[in-house]
Design a protein around this nucleic acid. Sequence first.
DNA 1: TTTATTTCGGATATTTTTATCCTATTTATT
DNA 2: AATAAATAGGATAAAAATATCCGAAATAAA
Lengths: 144, 144
Amino acid sequence: MFSKACEYGIKASIFIAINSFEGKRVSPKEIAKEIDSPQAFTAKILQALVKHNIVNSVKGAYGGFEIDKDKTAAIKLHHIVNAIDGDSIYNGCGLGLHECNEAHPCPVHDKFKSIRDELKFMLENTSLQELALNIKSGISFLKV
Amino acid sequence: MFSKACEYGIKASIFIAINSFEGKRVSPKEIAKEIDSPQAFTAKILQALVKHNIVNSVKGAYGGFEIDKDKTAAIKLHHIVNAIDGDSIYNGCGLGLHECNEAHPCPVHDKFKSIRDELKFMLENTSLQELALNIKSGISFLKV
DNA sequence: TTTATTTCGGATATTTTTATCCTATTTATT
DNA sequence: AATAAATAGGATAAAAATATCCGAAATAAA
């Protein structure tokens, strides 16, 4: 579904959000430990998230990664997914046709339509805030 | 969503089915041309489909690949997808957790639930026969 | 039995994804 | 100004996915 990079990116964003609620910045090391991912690779993904203005980074001593508290409700899953994997999951053709639409559909175009739409809706309407709150309250988990 | 190999496998199966309706066997060369895929790689995928009893192969002169006419209605997309990609698309965790279920859900477990279920249902209830008939009648397309 | 045709399957190559390492740069503190 | 602590980013490595090549084996027809 998602690439590894994207999975790490989503989980990292959630962990950063949780800490930002409490005014804490976190390092790639802490993040990687908490989401069970390779540290250096995670750092690279964080760079991408910073470039896409999803995550904010502060260099130097006492620096780290953070997310503006007031932005977590506005940041939706699709922002993160788009930044890392692009939009092909819900916009691309299920069978890889270059041109696939109502007028020229691939064999599974119609079968996939509602699935793709539901996926897109979910990604566009799920906020980082709610995911972070669910982790915080022990409703869901970032690893194992 | 699916791997390239799986995309090719689905399209190849459809093309073979169409030809089998007319009692014709097809070669990797014809298949690759018709579904716009690399020939040798497609041949490898066909071997996998043969091993999984989805496609039948006949060696030697006048040989080629075919699918038992009477099996196309029973062959569902999930048979092909499972043979090539496994079941992780609809059974695996969306964020790659090793253990992800109602009791220990990942952050998107619930959000994905209906999407995964719908995808699974679709794959289990879409037959090769209907996909092949749609291609045959010009309703859908295998390439471009 | 020979020949032509065709799939099978092992070896290899290429590309993409995933992952690691090291140095440069930035910044707060002393 | 010096130092220590961080991220940034380029170079490289490893693994997986995608793709190609070629000889072996099987089979129908001549």
